[in-house]
Simulated assay, not measured.
Amino acid sequence: MKVIIMRRPPWRNLVLWGVLLFVFLAYRDNVISVFSGKLKPIYSANVTTKAVGLTFDISWGEKTALPILDILKQEGVHATFFLSSPWAEKHPELVKRMVADGDEIGSHGNRHIDLNTLSPEEIAKEITSAQAVLERISGQKVRLIRVPNGAYDNKVISVADRLGYRVIQWSVDSLDWKRPGPAAVVNNVLNGIRPGAGVKPGSIILFHASDSAPDTIKALPEVIKALKAKGYVLMPVGQLLSEATGTWPPESNLKENGNPPKADNTPAGNTDKTQPGVPSP
Rank of each mutant, 00 (worst) to 15 (best):
I224S: 11
K225F: 09
K225R: 15
K225D: 14
K225Y: 12
K225G: 04
A226Y: 08
A226P: 09
A226F: 10
L227T: 12
L227A: 14
K228S: 10
A229T: 08
A229K: 15
G231L: 12
G231W: 13
Y232C: 13
Y232T: 10
V233A: 12
V233F: 07
V233E: 15
L234Q: 11
L234T: 07
L234W: 08
L234V: 07
L234I: 06
M235I: 15
P236K: 11
P236Y: 09
G238S: 14
G238D: 08
G238R: 12
G238Y: 04
G238W: 06
Q239V: 11
L240T: 08
L241P: 07
L241V: 11
S242T: 10
E243R: 13
E243N: 08
E243A: 14
A244R: 04
T245S: 15
T245R: 11
T245P: 00
T245A: 10
T245C: 02
G246C: 05
G246V: 03
G246M: 02
T247A: 13
T247N: 08
T247R: 12
T247Q: 11
W248E: 12
W248I: 11
P249N: 06
P249Q: 04
P249E: 04
P249G: 03
P250A: 12
E251L: 00
S252P: 04
S252H: 04
N253D: 11
N253E: 12
N253P: 00
N253S: 13
N253C: 07
L254G: 02
L254N: 02
K255G: 01
K255R: 13
E256P: 07
E256W: 06
G258H: 03
G258I: 04
N259Q: 11
N259D: 05
N259Y: 03
P260L: 02
P260H: 02
P261V: 02
P261W: 00
P261D: 07
P261C: 14
K262G: 07
K262Q: 13
K262V: 14
A263N: 08
D264Y: 01
D264N: 12
D264H: 03
D264T: 01
N265C: 02
N265L: 07
N265S: 11
N265R: 05
T266V: 15
A268E: 05
A268Y: 03
G269D: 02
G269L: 02
G269E: 02
N270A: 14
N270C: 13
T271G: 00
T271H: 10
D272Y: 00
K273Y: 03
K273N: 09
T274M: 10
T274V: 15
Q275E: 14
Q275H: 04
P276A: 08
P276G: 03
P276V: 02
G277A: 09
V278K: 10
